[in-house]
Design a protein around this nucleic acid. Sequence first.
DNA 1: GCAGTTACCAAACGATTGTTCAGTGACTTA
DNA 2: TAAGTCACTGAACAATCGTTTGGTAACTGC
Lengths: 204, 204
Amino acid sequence: MDPTPQQRARNPWGQGERLRGEILEAAARLLSELGGEEGLTIRGVARAAGIAPASIYQHFADKNALVHGLIEYDYERLAAAMAEADAALPAEQVVDRVRAQMHAYCQFALDSPGHYRLMLNNRPRREPGEPPKGPLGKVILGVTAAFERCEQAGHKLRLPAERSAVMVFVATHGLVALWHASPDERQLDRIEPMVSEFLSLVFA
Amino acid sequence: MDPTPQQRARNPWGQGERLRGEILEAAARLLSELGGEEGLTIRGVARAAGIAPASIYQHFADKNALVHGLIEYDYERLAAAMAEADAALPAEQVVDRVRAQMHAYCQFALDSPGHYRLMLNNRPRREPGEPPKGPLGKVILGVTAAFERCEQAGHKLRLPAERSAVMVFVATHGLVALWHASPDERQLDRIEPMVSEFLSLVFA
DNA sequence: GCAGTTACCAAACGATTGTTCAGTGACTTA
DNA sequence: TAAGTCACTGAACAATCGTTTGGTAACTGC
């Protein structure tokens, strides 16, 4: 029943900041188990981390701060996974590198539905003057760059590179969001081909 | 403060079923005001309908039954809006009729974010043997028919009609879902052009 | 008039939630 | 050894939630 039933040893003198990381890790673990934001509670995170609920408030002002800490951490994970997938392919396979990025994106979304939904449904209200994409900006930037390399390699696009990136990204989000809403094992295999189809639609 | 502060007159003898409709209407109103499922509570619906919370349980087994009643009602509204938009155009404007359906879809999603999110995030677990689309099947069916008329009129598609419909639908859902996640008035005008762009991508 | 049904409601129950506050014990500095 | 700091906790508060129970008042059929 209890994920971490044993007593936790307190951190050594002067290293209290460690607990912040442990709380984030425990919250991430819990969110993965739950598959959604609904059961993600202060008490639950505390239990998963093996600490008292009150201890969380030494590191996060309130539940919102904890959630946003999680989201930030997750965006870094996602961007890293996409960049890695991109870099893993030889430079000349320009189209495959777009596909690899989007594949990594889907993998993240399908492996961690709770994280993905939390990230995309709690995007920050944007300040006037900021770019409209929020933390997703980096993701789209990476895809845009990959599309630009396609153009330089001679592949014709039906839309400018950045617009192509936005289109493919938006469509892929629709796809994984719909799958999250009613997951179906038998449909899982259809997701990747559909992303490829989105890709082929933006190429001339 | 109170949405319906005045006392409600009880329904006449034998017409108790009326309250079921009033409850659904009150729930719909409340959901529109809230803009999300989070605050949609039995007590809130009761207050909006001007009745006691307990009275809801004479017409709905539990909160889930109430929510699913709402969802069913909303799917009918959506399908009707799309069919009407389709029929409002002359038969020969085949492409515009696809666009009109998707425009009606977006209008619904943007006018009633709470309803839209409730519908798409609470899709039923599918029984083995059922079509995989759930209540969205009818929506996609209408778009598919519109694409088939395009083909018959001589417009070339890059994918079969049904596949085109699914692609455009999925992409459009991604678009409105992202807008819901961080609404921005200045981006509102960009939604319709993007849907048109999705459409033009599936045409050869 | 009287029993029975219908349409509703007031009040409470029990569970869960975020959050606060007053500590407790271990360690460091003086 | 004494004072102070740090890491952390137990217990409670106040709010909200879905749901149940036991009614009451109005109307119908007899």
